[in-house]
Every structure is written in structure tokens, then in C-alpha cells.
Design a binder for these strands. Structure first.
Length: 949
RNA sequence: GCCGCGGUGGCGGAAUUGGUAGACGCGCGAGACUUAAAAUCUCGUGCUAGCAAUAGUGUGUGGGUUCGAUUCCCACCCGCGGCACCA
């Protein structure tokens, strides 16, 4: 018996071909009946890029997690849809093609085949009948269709402008793909280029992308990151008149108006010289030179605004540069800087004075206008007012500016008091205060709090016509053009005059040509295709040309879940009823690295298609969770260069797929990062081997013992008609504890699996296994003992069962989602061993008693499904799962001093519990001569006796 | 700087409507089997003192609330992730 060997290789091979034969979970019916609708569960795993190196252990973690859930839900009777597909376009395959000359379609196909084979080997129960790949014309035809729809609504547009360019990848990048000034893919320094590119107008949905987050069951951190990225800021756009002075000699085109009647009403004492000069405008020769609008989220501090700064890209800055060499020089320098250089300069301020002034009507102050690259062109208006007392950057800029131009220093005016009413002058950067406080030096705002002052000020500005309430967003439109080959062609053609036209819908899929030269030239590789050019001229006319750019692969991967609803549909991207039935996704498991880009884009597409009448939902992913990363044994992120990569194939070869699955689920919470531990893998393998051995022994024993079973062994653990001696026999006690543990384990798994708490679920199975092992051990001892004694003709001991057939089947069933191979094998063995017992063994048996016959027939009539994975999830009996006795901690003054064994029936009997507790011998020395002033009993939890001090 | 998450034995981690901290696994120690090793099995294992019973102490630090705090509140320290001259 103990030589039972779990031959994982043979068993896995056998199961895989058996499941293939059954087409288990393949091609599920996606047309739901109304009663099935409530039970539908659409489980989605992040789209995978099929890289050449195959599946890594990180993939396996998240795939296994969802697979366990899928299998569990199926056993619970849910209608589960668990599809798979490939994010197959992308740079690595193309770069590989450049190096080797092998066409990306070839490497991609090979990679997908490898992935699919590895996934099957791990028993991930995907529905492969609906598999899709983004490089399939059947798929990208609808990606292109989506482009057409967006274009027709004005949400896909072409724009000339400065864009991020990766010199190594030879393509533009979206803002989201630039990380700290570097290309997120290859790490090269990103430079700016002026190009005409295609954009999707995601900003059209910016408000809904915020409000839509409210009802979603997503981790709060994820929601927060999306909010940060969209970056909504309320504030006010304040417009200031701009003046030039004759001595500066650079008046702008349309100047000439005097300041005349500006700001008479709120005049304060102590006007500075500058203000007086301004107020006397005409006399000093100041001339009106247009106006400038600045965005501010802190208009309450506007009395402390002492200067204005323009971004180098600002229109006014460019205008000034035409007549001012210093400014022109600065703009030229700023333009050449890369994102990285701007960032590396960090807090090092630079800038140049323009010679112009803005007039602050509140403080009656003239504010010198500077140009500096710390102001961003594409946020707000590209111009800001400087409030150095309450903004660190502004203060640092003042320090710089006053070195640069000491003849006309910028001043620092405190307008908000600090904590404890601090009103000190601000002379050092450490004093700059951006927190809340009382307003000061601010006329009608004085003594108001910051929020009050903001409201009062905005109302005032609006009333006076100086400003207008505004909302700004950090989100920018999505640049989707890529100068690469291996992607979805943008369905646009140009007429001979260069005007863009949509490719006609009947020409979709607008196929990616094959005859291209991959060598990067800085231009789109599609330019080299003869076929592409000929196709356009044939279909659209002489002199017409195709759009040579392809789409960002995020376009492909941000609507795939819709296609899953109906992957083979030739008439539409999916059938409307299917979409309505299956969406939204019930659980999306995705790595934290996709939180910003992919999710934002997917939500944008969903909202757009809803507005077009194709979808009824506004949010695609009702519930989302993230898996953590599996780190190398050294606690570092796995990477080839560090040599700490674990190869999953090798683990499967050595220990089997179930071990790998359970190990990865066991090492820690799904969402946490956790290091790989080789020795712990072996521990999991040991656990499964023991479990298998115990189960096989029990299966055999059940089959062996049917003719001689007695009541207590075949029952459900209840006392029945046994006498006292039987009840207290070790085998009865051992069996009873085991059955109780089984009930508790079913309960634990039923609760933990839907919550994705696989680590604790597995721990409870291990606990069960430990109890089982101990019980089995004492049974074997008894057996050995009785065999020895049998020869000397003393007491003969009957072998006994620890688990009944039904109980064992329950155990095998709860194992099924976690260890699909092991449980299928055990299920098959049980079926084989227990069916047709009479045929197998009756010949050897002299006489079958009536009772034994009944037992055999009961065993034989157990119904077996074709697979354990087609059976239903076992139920548990709460009464059986509950121990009859509980152990209660008894505290004295909050410290545990004794334990009280308590019958479960007495759990609510406070008086008895307290009496029993106080009588505990262990408490004697603590209570002796002490007065108890308070007795606390929390039913089932604790007793605490509080003594007088 | 802002936003978010976290800090528990030698290690991964468990336990939260406040109720015996350390489940489960790894490692480690002792023992059994073996000529020996591996494998397997048994017992032990937070720390300190003690042969032991036992006592003290213990969930990043310092306070607070409570009969009782890993859990709640306040302040701080450290780590991780995201965003970042966003005015």
C-alpha cells in the first residue's frame, strides 16, 4: 500500500487526451436562456503578448487563479465563459524580423502554438473554440471598422504637432508610453519631433471616465491612479491686460490703449511706484499690448501674484521672440531640450524676461512677464501667475530671476498666514507655505479661510469680467499612429492633393501587405510595399496613396473582450444580443502595469460604442483584481540578465502541473509580490503525493471492505446505535475527527475560492491531509498489531474505513479546481474500483450476507460523471462542521491564564460558563484573595475576569 | 512634493463587525530507519530565564481609547508602487 506512486507524467498525459476526447469546456453555448442569464460569469484574463520565450511563471499565477475560479463556478452551476486570445501585433516580433529576416507572422504563429501547448499542459480550462489573435484579418478588420466609426464622429483626427519619438524603436509614442522621459519599451531617450499624426479624442469622455469609476468593484488604488492620470483640476482662467513700455522699445502690433479706468474701486493704501506708473499709463508711455490668460487653482492668493510666466511654446512668447533676440534664443534652446533634459535639470530654473508686463487689477501691481520652461505648454493656458510666497516653484523662480535681472527684482508678498497664525515675511524657500490658513494682505479676502477665499475670489473675478471658472485636465488625446510594420494598418487613403479619405467599409479588412522591407529607415516600412501602393491605385485611382502608419497595438487590445462575445461573427464585431447577455466582464484579472493605459482606452471604446448604440453598458469591467509579481529566489524581479528566471516547463517535468499550480497559489496572497522558493515547491509536491497515497489506499479499502462493513464505518459519523465502548474506540474517534475536518475543509474552500484566497484554501486542505495522515497511521498500527495477534489466535481486529465512499468523493471534488489532474485520476480510480464489484470479486467470496449485498449494491450504484470536472460542488453540513466542544480562553486582567473546555450547547449560558471558568484550578493562584470587580463573557470568544486594583 | 499600499518568528505568510498572535508551508534542532547517504517518518521550534512546571516579553516607534488592540484613533519612522515643475 505504501508503494503507491504518483506518476504525474503518465497521469497528466492520460488526462489531457481524455479531456481532449471529451472536448471539456470547449465551444460553450454562448446563447443564454433567460434562466441561465443570472448565472453567467465572464472571466477575463489580461491579453497576452505571445513572446518568443514562452509562458513564464508570472503568467501561470494569474491564469491558474482564474482557472480555479472558473472550475469552481462551473461546479457551482454557473454559466462560465473563459476565453483566450493573443495580443499578437507588436514590436518584438518585428525587431526579431529585422535581425533574422524571418517574417513576424511566422514567429508569431510559432509563439502562439508554444503558448497554447503550455497552457493546455497546465490544464487552464480556456474555451479554445473562441480563440482569437489581433493579427488575424478577421479580427483587425473590426479594429479598422472601429477607426471608421470614430472618424465619422470626429473622434479620430489628424494633427500636426510635437510628438514623442523613440529613436531606437523608430516610432512615435503616446504620452502614456513615455516613462521618465524614456521609451517604456526599450529605455531609449525620447526626443520631440514635429509630425502629422492620428489621434483618438479620448478627452471627449474625460468627465465620464471619472464618474464611471464610482460604481465599479475595483481596488481603490487602481481607481485613484486613473483619477490621477486624468488629473481634473478646478480653477479659474484670469485674463490680464499686457503692457509694453517705450524704453523697452518692443511694443507689440496692436498696442496703444491707456490703462485709463482700470481698478479704481478697490484701491488700497501704499501703492507701489510701479502701480502708480501703471495707473498713469499714458504719461509714462505704457502701451496696451494685448492680454494674457492664466489658469489658477488658487485665485485666493492673487493679491500675492507678482509676475507672469509663459511656456516657451506660448503664442505670445513666439510673438515676442520675433522682435527680441534674447527671447528668441531662449525659445530655440528650450525647443531642443528633450523631455529627459527638462526633467534632469530638475529644479534648476531657467528663463528670460520679455520686457512686457501684465497688470494685476486686484493689487494694482504690474507683473513682469517672463518666459520659462518650467511652465508646461499643454496644460491650462500655458501661462501662469507667480505667487512666490505660496508656491515653491514660483519662489525658486524668483530667486533665479532676481539673480538674472537684479535691476527689477520680483517681490514676495505673503497673503496666507501659516499654522498658529504665523505671518512672518517669506524670505527662504523653506518658508514657502501652500497649506490652509487665514488670508492677509488681500483687501476684501482678509481673514477668510483658503476655501472661502477661493470661492469669494472666483465670484468676484467673474462678476468683474476678469476671469472665468474653468476645469483643466492632465489627460491628453491618444496618439495612435506608429511608424512600424507589425500592426493594424490605419484604414486611410490620400487623394493626389493629399486629403485623407476613409477606406471604404467593403474594402475591410484593409490587409497588411507582406512585401515589405523591415529595415528601419525612420519612415514607415509599409512605404516599401509595391502591393500596397498598387492596391490603393486600383481601388481608389491613379495618384492615390495609402496611409503608411499602423495603429498603436493598444487599439487592438482595448476592445478584444467585446470580440470574445462572438469571435467568429462575419457581419459585425459581435452580435448585439450576445453583447448584452455577456457584458460586463464579471471578473477581470490583470497586472497592475496595465492600470492606466489599457483600462482607460477600453473604457473609452466602451463608452463610444454605447453612444453609437452598439452596447448597453457604460463600463466594461464590473469587477477587477490584480495579481502580484512572482520574483526570483533572490527577491529580485526575474530577468535573464540576473539569471534568476524560473522555467515553468522544468517544474512541470519534475513535479507535475498540479504541483506548480498549487505552489503558485500557496506562496502568498494573489495580489502580493512574492519570491520563488524552490524548497517550498518540493513541500507542495510532498503534500500532493501524500494526499494521493491516502486517497488511493482509502479507495482500495472501500472496495475491499464492502462485504464486511459494519454500521459505524458506513454511517455519516453520527452515533447511531453504537454502544459506549464502540463510541470511544480509537478508530471511531479518529474517523469522527476526520469527517468533521472534511466538513470544515469544504466550508473553508467554499468561502475562500470565490474570494480568490487560494493560499488559505490550500492551507486548510493541508490541515485536512495532516489529520488524515495521523488517522491512517494509527489504523495501520492497529492492522499490524492484529495481524501479529492473529497468528497467536487472540483478538482479531477488523480493518475500518476513515472515509465513506461519498465522503471521499466530496474530497476529490473540492480538490478538482486546484489540482485538476490529481482529482481526475482519483475519480477514475474510484470509479474503476467500485463499479461491478460483484463481477470482480464475488467469486472469491463464499457467502454474501444480505447486509453486505446491500452495501455492495449501494457502492455500485454510486453515479459517476464522465469527469470529476463535470460534477457539482459538494455541500457541507454546518452542524457537522461545528465541534461539539470548544476551547475558550480565560483571561485575568486581560492576560490569558487558563483554558476552558466548553460543550457547544452551553455557549450561550453565561452564568454556567463564568462559574466553570472561575472554578478552573489553573486560576486558583491568580484569584486567591483577590476581588473580582467585573466578569466579561463574549459568547464563544473569551472570558475575562477583572480584579480590583 | 502629491496619491495609494504596506511593516507580524530565521523565511513566505495566517488571524481584523477588537477577543488564546504566529494557522499552513519552508528552514532549523533532536531522534527512528539505513553499512552510509538520499528519501521517508516521529517529536520540538517567536524571544528571554529555567531540567521542568512556569513566568516575563512580543505584531515598525511613541502616545491614546478599551476589561481586552496586529485590528480603532493621533503623531512619527521605514519600505514599496504610481504620478510629478499640472500652477
Amino acid at each position: 500500500m505504501s508503494n503507491v506512486f504518483y506518476d504525474h507524467q503518465a497521469i497528466e498525459e492520460k488526462c489531457l487526451s481524455y479531456w481532449d476526447e471529451l472536448a471539456l469546456f470547449q465551444d460553450v453555448n454562448l446563447d443564454l436562456t433567460p434562466s441561465d442569464l443570472a448565472k453567467k460569469s465572464f472571466l477575463l484574463f489580461a491579453f497576452v503578448y505571445p513572446s518568443g520565450s514562452g509562458l513564464h511563471v508570472g503568467h501561470i499565477e494569474s491564469k491558474t487563479a482564474l482557472d480555479i475560479l472558473a472550475r469552481f463556478q462551473r461546479m457551482k452551476g454557473q454559466q462560465v465563459y473563459f476565453p483566450v486570445g493573443w495580443d499578437a501585433f507588436g514590436l518584438p516580433a518585428e525587431n526579431y524580423a529585422i535581425k533574422t529576416g524571418i517574417h513576424p507572422s511566422q514567429t508569431t504563429k510559432t509563439a502562439i502554438d508554444t503558448f497554447r501547448q503550455q497552457i493546455k499542459r497546465l490544464a487552464i480550462s480556456y474555451d479554445f473554440a473562441n480563440e482569437l489573435a489581433t493579427n488575424d484579418p478577421d479580427y483587425y478588420r473590426w479594429t479598422q471598422w472601429l477607426f471608421l466609426q470614430l472618424h465619422q464622429k470626429g473622434l479620430a483626427y489628424q494633427k500636426q504637432g510635437r510628438v514623442n519619438w523613440c529613436p531606437s524603436c523608430q516610432t512615435v509614442l503616446a504620452n502614456e508610453q513615455v516613462v521618465n522621459g524614456l521609451c517604456e519599451r526599450c529605455g531609449s531617450e525620447v526626443v520631440q519631433k514635429d509630425l502629422k499624426q492620428w489621434y483618438f479624442k479620448i478627452k471627449a469622455y474625460q468627465d465620464e471616465l471619472i464618474s464611471g469609476l464610482d460604481g465599479l468593484d475595483w481596488p481603490t488604488a487602481t481607481k485613484q491612479q486613473q483619477l490621477n492620470w486624468i488629473g481634473r483640476h478646478e480653477g479659474v482662467n484670469i485674463t490680464y491686460p499686457v503692457y509694453a513700455y517705450p524704453d523697452d522699445g518692443k511694443s507689440l502690433a496692436d498696442g496703444g490703449n491707456s490703462l485709463a479706468n482700470e481698478g479704481n474701486d478697490s484701491a488700497e493704501e501704499g501703492s507701489s511706484l510701479a502701480e502708480e506708473q501703471l495707473n498713469q499709463g499714458e504719461d509714462t508711455g505704457a502701451s496696451r499690448a494685448g492680454e494674457i490668460t492664466c489658469f489658477s487653482s488658487r485665485p485666493d492668493t492673487n493679491f500675492g501674484a507678482t509676475f507672469v510666466v509663459l511656456a516657451p511654446e506660448h503664442a505670445l512668447a513666439k510673438q515676442i521672440a520675433e522682435k527680441n533676440e534674447l527671447v528668441a534664443e531662449y525659445l530655440a534652446k528650450a525647443e531642443k531640450k528633450t523631455e529627459l533634459e527638462r526633467q534632469q535639470e530638475g529644479k534648476q530654473k531657467s528663463g528670460v524676461f520679455t520686457g512686457f508686463y501684465a497688470f494685476n487689477p486686484l493689487s494694482k501691481r504690474r507683473m513682469p512677464i517672463w518666459v520659462a520652461d518650467f511652465v508646461l505648454a499643454n496644460y491650462g493656458t500655458g501661462a501662469v501667475v507667480g505667487v512666490p510666497a505660496h508656491d515653491k516653484r514660483d519662489f525658486e523662480f524668483v530667486e533665479f530671476a532676481n539673480r538674472q535681472n537684479p535691476r527689477e527684482p520680483l517681490s514676495v508678498i505673503r497673503v496666507v498666514s501659516g499654522p498658529d497664525g504665523n505671518q512672518d515675511e517669506i524670505t527662504q524657500v523653506e518658508q514657502v507655505y501652500s497649506g490652509e490658513g487665514q488670508l492677509m494682505n488681500s483687501a476684501f479676502l482678509n481673514d477668510l479661510s483658503v476655501p472661502e477665499a477661493i470661492e469669494t475670489m472666483i465670484d468676484y473675478l467673474e462678476e468683474k469680467g476678469y476671469g472665468q471658472r474653468t476645469v483643466n485636465y492632465q489627460l491628453r488625446d491618444w496618439l495612435i499612429s506608429r511608424q512600424r510594420y507589425w500592426g493594424t494598418p490605419i484604414p486611410i487613403v490620400y487623394d493626389p492633393e493629399g486629403n485623407a479619405h476613409l477606406v471604404k467599409e467593403e474594402h475591410l479588412p484593409w490587409t497588411l501587405p507582406d512585401d515589405v522591407d523591415f529595415k528601419p529607415t525612420g519612415e514607415s516600412p509599409l512605404k516599401s510595399s509595391k502591393e500596397f501602393q498598387e492596391r490603393v491605385e486600383r481601388l481608389y485611382g491613379k495618384g492615390w496613396t495609402p496611409e503608411y502608419d499602423t495603429m498603436d497595438t493598444f487599439v487592438d487590445s482595448s476592445w478584444y473582450f467585446l470580440r470574445y462575445c462572438d469571435s467568429h461573427n462575419q457581419q459585425a464585431f459581435a452580435d448585439p444580443q450576445r453583447l448584452e447577455q455577456w457584458l460586463p466582464i464579471d471578473l477581470y484579472l490583470i497586472g497592475p502595469e496595465h492600470i492606466v493605459l489599457h483600462l482607460l482606452y477600453s473604457r473609452f471604446f466602451t463608452k463610444f460604442l454605447r453612444d453609437e448604440g452598439h452596447l448597453k453598458i457604460s463600463e466594461p469591467f464590473a469587477k477587477m483584481r490584480h495579481q502580484g509579481m512572482i520574483l526570483g529566489p533572490d527577491g529580485q524581479k526575474m530577468s535573464k540578465s540576473k539569471g534568476n528566471v524560473i522555467n515553468p516547463d522544468q517544474i512541470v517535468d519534475q513535479y507535475g502541473a498540479d504541483t506548480l499550480r498549487i505552489y503558485e497559489m500557496f506562496i502568498g496572497p494573489l495580489e502580493a509580490d512574492k519570491p520563488w522558493d524552490d524548497r517550498a515547491v518540493a513541500g507542495v509536491a510532498r503534500f500532493l503525493r501524500k494526499l494521493y497515497r491516502l486517497a488511493v489506499e482509502e479507495i482500495e479499502l472501500i472496495a475491499e471492505l464492502w462485504p464486511v462493513l459494519d454500521e459505524e464505518n458506513n454511517g455519516n459519523g453520527q452515533a447511531g446505535g453504537n454502544n459506549q465502548a464502540e463510541l470511544s474506540s480509537p478508530e471511531f474517534v479518529g474517523r469522527k475527527a476526520l469527517v468533521q475536518k472534511l466538513q470544515q475543509t469544504i466550508k473553508k474552500l467554499s468561502e475562500d475560492l470565490p474570494k480568490l484566497k487560494f493560499n488559505t484554501a490550500i492551507a486548510s486542505l493541508m490541515e485536512f491531509n495532516n489529520v488524515w495522515e495521523k488517522a491512517s497511521l494509527s489504523r495501520n498500527r492497529l492492522k499490524t498489531l492484529s495481524e501479529e495477534n492473529a497468528s497467536s489466535k487472540s483478538t482479531f481486529h477488523t480493518p475500518y474505513l476513515l472515509l465513506s465512499a461519498e465522503e471521499l468523493l466530496k474530497l476529490i471534488a473540492i480538490l478538482a479546481p486546484l489540482a485538476p489532474f490529481l482529482s481526475e485520476e482519483l475519480y477514475g480510480q474510484a470509479k474503476y474500483a467500485w463499479q461491478n464489484l460483484a463481477d470482480q470479486t464475488l467469486g472469491e467470496i463464499k457467502c454474501e450476507t444480505g447486509e453486505a449485498r446491500a452495501r455492495r449494491q449501494a457502492l455500485e450504484s454510486l453515479e459517476f460523471a464522465a469527469s470529476i470536472h463535470l460534477t457539482t460542488w459538494p455541500t457541507y453540513d454546518p452542524a457537522l462542521a461545528q465541534s461539539e466542544q470548544i476551547t475558550l480562553a480565560v483571561q485575568v486582567n486581560g492576560k490569558v491564564r487558563a483554558e476552558l473546555k466548553l460543550d457547544y450547547d452551553l455557549i450561550n449560558d453565561q452564568a454556567t460558563v463564568l462559574t466553570q471558568a472561575k472554578a478552573l484550578p489553573a486560576l486558583e493562584k491568580w484569584l486567591l484573595g483577590q476581588q473580582i470587580i467585573k466578569e466579561i463573557y463574549v459568547p464563544g470568544k473569551i472570558v475575562n475576569l477583572v480584579l480590583a486594583a
